[in-house]
């Protein structure tokens, strides 16, 4: 998985490309842990994301919890497959999907 990072002051954009699963979730977790300090607006771009597993959902939940405390988090360009995962797991209710 490739993560493209674009930070602009307190705005952080992360574009994910590839598969977010058990093997790649720690990569995103580490990236968030490192960069999310002081960020008030976190945007995740899923346009190039092919697959999302429960390990990936866990990282998204952690990020959502952190951002609930210090600002907001938006996920954009969610494709149909991943939207279905969000709906089945109830994540659609707690995430802000634009």
């Amino acid at each position: 998985m490739t993560i493209t990072k674009n930070q602009n002051g307190t705005h952080l954009d992360l574009a994910l490309e590839g598969r977010l699963d058990t093997t790649t979730a720690p990569q995103l977790e580490a990236e968030l842990k490192q960069s999310v300090g002081g960020v008030t607006e976190l945007t995740l771009d899923f346009s190039q994301l092919e697959y999302l597993s429960s390990a990936g959902l866990r990282v998204l939940l952690s990020a959502q919890k952190v951002m609930n405390r210090q600002g907001s988090m938006v996920i954009k360009n969610v494709n149909e497959t991943i939207m279905e995962i969000f709906e089945v797991t109830g994540f659609a209710d707690i995430l802000t999907i634009a």
Partner: peptide
């Protein structure tokens, strides 16, 4: 219909 996952949010 699915609710949110267990252990995610305590007020679910």
């Amino acid at each position: 219909r699915a609710g949110f996952v267990l252990a995610g949010m305590d007020m679910t």
